Each structure stands twice: as structure tokens, then as C-alpha cells.
Amino acid sequence: AEKTGIVNVSSSLNVREGASTSSKVIGSLSGNTKVTIVGEEGAFYKIEYKGSHSYVAKEYIKDIKDE
């Protein structure tokens, strides 16, 4: 089941290729951006990003809701 969340950062949140802080950064999301969460892996959520799937750190996503 998909969930949505809100990016909870003051500046921007790195979007990564994989579920690791050493993964390549492929983009960023600004605070209060709504994201669609399709899964989770460790400390990361797998999200829909620009037509494919990428990862963001869970600690920076708030207001998780089931869609």
C-alpha cells in the first residue's frame, strides 16, 4: 500500500539512488514537498521521484499517511 509523507527540512533533502548515505545523490526535495512512499529499506523510504524510484532518509519525512 502506498503512503504519502511531507519533507520536513528547512532547506533541502537529498534524494539518493540507493538506501544508503553513501549512495549517489540524484536530486533534492525542498521542505513541505509531498512525497509518495512505495516502500522502506532500513533507515530510508523508497519514494516515487521523476518517474522512477529513489530513496530519502526516514528521519526527514513527517505526517505519514496511508493513501
Rank of each mutant, 00 (worst) to 15 (best):
A1I: 14
E2S: 15
E2T: 15
E2I: 15
E2K: 15
E2M: 15
E2Y: 15
E2D: 09
K3A: 06
K3I: 09
T4D: 04
T4K: 08
T4H: 10
T4I: 12
T4A: 07
T4G: 05
T4F: 14
G5A: 05
G5F: 06
I6Q: 05
I6W: 12
I6N: 04
V7S: 04
V7D: 02
V7W: 02
N8K: 12
N8V: 14
N8L: 09
N8Y: 10
N8G: 08
V9S: 12
V9W: 07
V9F: 07
V9G: 11
V9D: 06
V9L: 08
V9Q: 07
V9R: 08
V9H: 11
V9M: 08
S10F: 09
S10V: 13
S10R: 12
S10P: 11
S11L: 10
S11V: 13
S11N: 11
S11E: 12
S11H: 14
S11W: 09
S11A: 11
S12A: 11
S12F: 14
L13A: 14
L13E: 03
L13H: 02
N14P: 15
N14C: 15
N14R: 12
N14Q: 14
V15M: 06
V15C: 06
V15S: 01
V15P: 01
R16W: 15
R16P: 01
R16T: 09
R16G: 02
R16K: 06
R16E: 01
R16N: 07
E17S: 10
E17Q: 09
E17L: 08
G18I: 07
G18Y: 14
G18H: 14
G18T: 12
G18M: 10
A19V: 05
A19H: 04
S20F: 08
S20I: 04
S20N: 09
S20G: 05
S20Q: 06
S20E: 06
T21A: 12
T21Y: 15
T21V: 12
T21G: 09
T21P: 12
S22F: 09
S23M: 04
S23E: 04
S23C: 08
S23H: 07
K24N: 08
K24F: 06
K24V: 07
K24S: 07
V25D: 02
V25N: 03
V25W: 05
V25C: 07
I26H: 03
I26N: 04
I26A: 04
I26E: 02
G27Y: 03
G27S: 02
G27H: 02
G27A: 05
G27T: 02
G27D: 03
G27V: 02
G27K: 01
S28L: 12
S28M: 12
S28Y: 13
L29M: 05
L29K: 01
L29I: 10
L29N: 00
L29Q: 01
L29E: 01
L29C: 04
S30C: 14
S30M: 14
S30K: 14
S30L: 14
S30Q: 14
S30R: 14
S30T: 12
S30P: 15
G31I: 09
G31L: 10
G31V: 11
N32Q: 10
N32M: 10
N32C: 14
T33K: 05
T33S: 10
T33M: 10
K34S: 07
K34V: 13
K34D: 03
K34C: 11
K34M: 12
V35E: 00
V35D: 00
V35G: 00
T36M: 09
T36Q: 08
T36H: 11
T36F: 13
T36R: 14
T36W: 14
T36A: 07
I37A: 00
I37P: 00
I37T: 00
V38K: 05
V38S: 04
V38H: 05
G39V: 01
G39D: 06
G39R: 03
G39Q: 03
G39P: 00
G39E: 04
G39T: 03
G39A: 07
E40N: 04
E40I: 07
E40C: 09
E40S: 07
E41A: 08
E41M: 08
E41L: 08
E41D: 09
E41G: 03
E41Q: 08
G42V: 03
G42Y: 05
G42N: 07
G42R: 04
A43Y: 07
A43S: 10
A43Q: 11
A43P: 09
A43V: 08
F44G: 00
F44P: 00
F44Y: 09
F44C: 04
F44W: 13
F44S: 03
F44M: 04
F44I: 00
Y45L: 06
Y45F: 09
Y45E: 00
Y45G: 00
Y45P: 01
Y45C: 03
Y45T: 01
Y45S: 00
K46C: 10
K46W: 05
K46V: 13
K46G: 02
I47R: 00
I47W: 00
I47Q: 00
I47Y: 00
E48W: 15
E48D: 08
E48T: 10
E48H: 09
E48C: 15
Y49N: 01
Y49W: 10
Y49F: 12
Y49V: 02
Y49T: 01
Y49S: 01
K50N: 13
K50Q: 12
K50P: 02
K50A: 10
K50R: 10
G51Y: 04
G51L: 05
G51R: 04
G51T: 05
S52E: 08
S52D: 07
S52C: 09
S52K: 13
S52N: 09
H53V: 13
H53Q: 08
H53F: 14
H53A: 06
H53N: 06
H53S: 05
H53K: 06
H53T: 09
H53C: 08
S54F: 15
S54Q: 07
S54W: 09
S54M: 12
S54D: 01
S54N: 06
Y55E: 00
Y55A: 00
V56T: 01
V56G: 01
V56L: 04
V56R: 00
A57P: 14
A57G: 08
A57H: 07
K58C: 03
K58W: 02
K58T: 03
K58Y: 02
K58H: 02
K58N: 01
K58L: 02
K58A: 05
E59Y: 09
E59F: 08
E59Q: 11
E59P: 04
E59A: 12
Y60R: 04
Y60V: 04
Y60S: 08
Y60T: 04
Y60E: 06
Y60D: 08
I61M: 04
I61S: 01
I61P: 00
I61R: 01
I61V: 08
I61Y: 02
K62A: 11
K62G: 10
K62H: 09
K62N: 10
D63C: 14
D63S: 10
D63N: 10
D63M: 15
D63E: 14
D63W: 12
D63Y: 12
D63R: 11
I64P: 06
K65L: 11
K65P: 09
K65V: 13
K65G: 10
K65T: 14
D66Q: 13
D66G: 10
D66Y: 14
D66P: 12
D66H: 12
E67W: 08
E67P: 12
E67Y: 10
E67N: 13
